[in-house]
């Protein structure tokens, strides 16, 4: 994985924290995180649990535990959806899933490439880790960068974390775990490959980060057109409960509606700012609609989305006015 022989931040931190010069480093490098996430599972149904992520950005306080994780009990063993932000989280998740189901972990699905969903992979056998071809490729391309970003954002919680690539490639279809059949739906929009899981037994739809509820959606790898189509498709699947990637699991259309509304709001606001000739900082100062006040991290994610979307608008929409003279 390493692309150069230069030491990464992790190598340097690992070496320095153990050495006599540790006291010379800025204090924030040395803040020791608590040793446990203290995961607790919320029972959603017979043999289905959710570990709720915090409705926050990734910080050194929350250790990156911001995404929802789902555990299914099946006759083949525990089935887990997403592994969380770190090795430590993955290990606690593995232990909790085994305790809840009384069985070893049979399968771990990864919904998409984002770091708050995949850096617990280390706690599981690579053969048990399953993802689409697009996710495996995405992790190969982006994984190292995500690792560095996570070390920076979550700090000591990441100690010992390395990215493990899934060895099982899955496509759309049904996976049979004996008493529980899971339908795998491959979509895109939040990223280039988003896996959605429908549990036939419970009627639950595990939507991954295609759905955010009461927390602003993130767009670093999004295609908003594809995302809106995915939301329409999800709305066409009858389900008893929708588990979003972030936010409460509900038997309602709130998650789908709110995610669509958020996407349309940032599209309109950002496009409107661009059409007036504003720059990114001026666009960042614009007011957001009142309804977004109830959405966690609304302004934070709006500002991030500006960085993702504005350069694309400039490249695509500013008229060509000249070129190289010679």
């Amino acid at each position: 994985m390493r692309r150069s022989s230069r030491p990464s931040r992790r190598d340097v931190m690992a070496a320095l924290s153990a050495s006599a010069v540790a006291h010379l480093l800025p204090a924030f490098e040395l803040e020791a995180a608590p040793l446990t996430y203290g995961l607790s599972a919320q029972r959603l149904d017979d043999g289905v649990w959710m570990i709720a992520g915090r409705q926050e950005a990734i910080t050194q306080k929350n250790g990156g535990a911001i995404a929802n994780i789902v555990i299914f009990d099946t006759s083949a063993g525990a089935v887990i959806v997403d592994t969380g932000p770190s090795r430590r989280f993955g290990e606690e998740l593995s232990a909790l899933a085994t305790e809840l189901t009384g069985k070893p972990v049979a399968r771990v699905f990864l919904t998409h490439i984002h770091p708050d969903h995949v850096f617990g992979n280390q706690a599981f056998k690579p053969e048990a880790l399953a993802a689409t071809e697009g996710v495996v490729k995405g992790l190969k391309d982006m994984g190292e960068g995500y690792a560095d970003a996570m070390y920076r954002a979550a700090g000591d919680w990441m100690r010992g974390t390395e990215l493990v690539l899934p060895k099982s490639v899955v496509a759309a279809g049904v996976e049979d775990f004996g008493n529980r059949r899971l339908r795998l739906l491959t979509m895109r929009g939040h990223t280039a490959s988003d896996l959605v899981i429908f549990d036939e037994r419970s009627g639950f739809l595990v939507a991954g980060d295609l759905v955010f509820l009461d927390r602003a959606a993130t767009t670093p790898n999004a295609n908003l057109e594809h995302w809106k189509i995915a939301l329409a498709n999800l709305g066409g699947i009858p389900h008893r409960l929708l588990v979003p990637g972030h936010g409460p699991a509900e038997n309602s259309t709130r998650g789908l509606d709110q995610t669509r509304q958020w996407i349309m709001m940032i599209e309109d606001t950002i496009r409107g700012a661009f059409d007036r000739g504003l720059d990114i900082n001026e666009a960042a100062a614009l007011p957001l609609p009142a309804w977004t006040e109830g959405i966690a991290l609304a302004r934070y994610e709006y500002e991030r989305s500006l960085t993702h979307i504005y350069p694309k608008l400039e490249a695509e929409r500013l008229p060509q006015v000249g070129g190289r003279a010679r």
């Binding site: 007036r276 000739g277 960042a284 100062a285 070129g323 190289r324 003279a325 010679r326």
Partner: peptide
């Protein structure tokens, strides 16, 4: 290398609102 451009800028074009103040 040199580069030449010409950006149309007549009174026919106008913004709808003044830009917001940033601070």
């Amino acid at each position: 290398s040199t580069y030449r451009s010409s950006i149309p800028s007549s009174f026919d074009q106008s913004a709808l609102d003044p830009a917001p103040t940033v601070s």
